[in-house]
Amino acid sequence: MLQQSHPLYDYHVWANDRLFAHLEQLPNEAFHAEVTSVFPSVAQTFGHMYKFEQLFMHVLAKIPNEDIFPKLPGWEEEPKGRTVDEMRRLFAGVADQFRDLLRRTPDPDKAMTIEHPQYGRLDTRFSDILRHVVNHGTYHRGHITAILRQQGYAGVPTDYMFFLVERREYE
């Protein structure tokens, strides 16, 4: 699975970067403007994504819940009020940490058990949780596109196929 997990994460980072680059071309108010949607703004959607990027990275690093849960309010607070560029840097920092974790994980298909106080025990694999991280990002990038369209701005294509085509062009 090593050959598949890392390119999927690379896609995830690529898609976020593409979206940040697009947002940098739009008026600043597009990032914080509130609309009626799943999340009230692009900034708040990214804030949610950031919190869960941190959470799942710590889960994959096998950090105990009692060490993770106290950090959740800080991860929720940290992205608030940020500019597009500041948010992009937060995500770049998480991506660096995630890539370090991936380098230190020789077997991405290794079995792992996740204990959640509300949902119970899940016997799974590292690679399954990594796929969840990518899927979670894809889901919320779609919300961001919808929020932008509600404001009258175009989105930017972040489909996996575009990543594959672009990557092929640079090989």
Rank of each mutant, 00 (worst) to 15 (best):
V59G: 09
L60T: 11
L60D: 09
L60S: 07
A61R: 09
A61V: 01
K62S: 10
K62C: 11
K62H: 08
I63Q: 08
P64W: 01
N65A: 11
N65Y: 10
E66S: 12
E66I: 14
D67M: 07
D67L: 09
D67I: 05
D67T: 10
F69M: 14
P70A: 04
K71P: 00
K71E: 10
K71V: 00
L72P: 11
L72G: 12
L72K: 14
L72V: 15
L72R: 15
P73R: 02
P73K: 00
P73I: 01
G74C: 00
G74Y: 01
G74K: 04
G74D: 04
W75S: 06
W75C: 06
W75K: 03
W75E: 03
W75H: 04
E76H: 07
E76D: 14
E77S: 12
E77P: 07
E78A: 15
P79A: 13
K80N: 09
K80W: 02
G81S: 03
T83A: 02
T83F: 03
T83H: 01
T83I: 01
T83P: 02
V84C: 04
D85P: 00
D85G: 08
D85M: 07
E86A: 13
E86T: 07
E86G: 06
E86S: 05
E86I: 06
M87W: 02
M87F: 06
R89S: 15
R89Q: 15
R89M: 14
R89D: 15
L90I: 15
L90Y: 15
L90W: 14
L90R: 14
F91E: 07
F91P: 03
F91Q: 08
F91V: 05
F91K: 04
F91L: 06
A92N: 06
A92G: 03
A92Y: 05
A92D: 10
G93I: 03
G93M: 04
G93E: 13
V94T: 08
V94A: 05
A95E: 08
A95S: 11
A95T: 12
D96K: 12
D96V: 14
D96Y: 09
D96N: 13
D96S: 13
Q97K: 14
Q97L: 10
Q97S: 13
